[in-house]
């Protein structure tokens, strides 16, 4: 893991109106790793990762301040277009949110098609590859033309993962991607996250500590918008340095 970090967050702050949701968070993420963000509800986990692709600012009254480097580029730098940033940093949401009235194929191809790619062969190739990476190909290859909505909840979430992967981002943000799913669907997605590490760097918010322990390389613990502790997952869950971390992972609050 002696690589240059792919994402470096420096003194990131975020607000909703007057509420200070993320306070001075700094951390670094290595390429091809899985980083878990844990913490009790309302601690700013989601807000934090929504700042990493500048989606936070799309909410009325929301703003963010600080530096987030993707490679050498500060995505909060002057003249940086958030639209371009979001092509490099994809996102999967809490609830599956397929595009309405669009087929399985069109859901996955949407990002490419709307970016102007028209070549059928290229679209087909990328859709297949994305669906394979999302471990969904075998289940949907025979019904690429049927409505996205016809899939089950777990399949829908994997469809959303495939959709995010299709534009080939270098970082994939996941905001509690399994919280709306049953245990079997959750297990499938956890497995694919571990495999996806070869393709993208993953930052995942989870309220499920066991999940963080199972799939992540490093874990960040947020509390009331502050980063309490950040380190190797194996250490956070066995020998946490901070009292608050220990209290949280042993279930004293949360």
């Amino acid at each position: 893991m002696d690589m240059q970090p792919i994402v470096r967050v420096r003194k990131l702050n975020a607000w909703f109106g007057a509420a200070h949701a993320v306070k001075n968070v700094s951390l670094e993420v290595e390429p091809h790793s899985v980083t878990a963000i844990i913490g009790p509800s309302g601690c700013g986990k989601s807000t934090f990762i929504r700042c990493l692709n500048r989606l936070h600012e799309e909410v009325p009254d929301a703003r963010a301040h600080g530096e987030v480097f993707l490679g050498d580029t500060n995505i909060y730098g002057e003249g940086i277009d958030p639209v371009v940033i979001r092509r490099k940093i994809g996102m999967v949401f809490q609830k599956p949110n397929p595009f309405p009235a669009a087929s399985v194929f069109d859901n996955v191809a949407a990002g490419l098609k709307l970016a102007g790619i028209r070549k059928k062969a290229l679209l087909m190739e990328r859709v297949e590859r994305s669906l394979r990476h999302a471990a969904l190909w075998d289940e949907v290859k025979a019904k690429l033309g049927s409505p996205g909505m016809s899939l089950s909840g777990g399949q829908l979430q994997r469809l959303c993962i495939a959709r995010a992967l299709a534009v080939e981002p270098s970082v994939l943000l996941m905001d509690e991607p399994t919280s709306a799913l049953d245990p079997i669907a959750t297990k499938k997605i956890e497995e694919l996250i571990v495999n996806l590490r070869k393709e993208v760097t993953i930052i995942i918010v989870t309220h499920n500590m066991q999940q963080a322990a199972r799939i992540s390389d490093r874990t960040a613990f947020l509390l009331l918008g502050e980063l309490i502790e950040f380190g190797a997952t194996s250490e956070i869950f066995t020998v946490p340095k901070e009292k608050q971390t220990e209290a949280y992972i042993t279930g004293k609050f949360g």
């Binding site: 989606l55 639209v83 979001r86 092509r87 609830k95 949110n97 990002g111 959709r163 995010a164």
Partner: peptide, 15 residues
């Protein structure tokens, strides 16, 4: 159309 669908579109890097 849920707001999350719009966010999904924005998150794909679409204007």
């Amino acid at each position: 159309v849920p707001a999350s669908v719009r966010e999904a579109g924005l998150a794909l890097g679409l204007p």
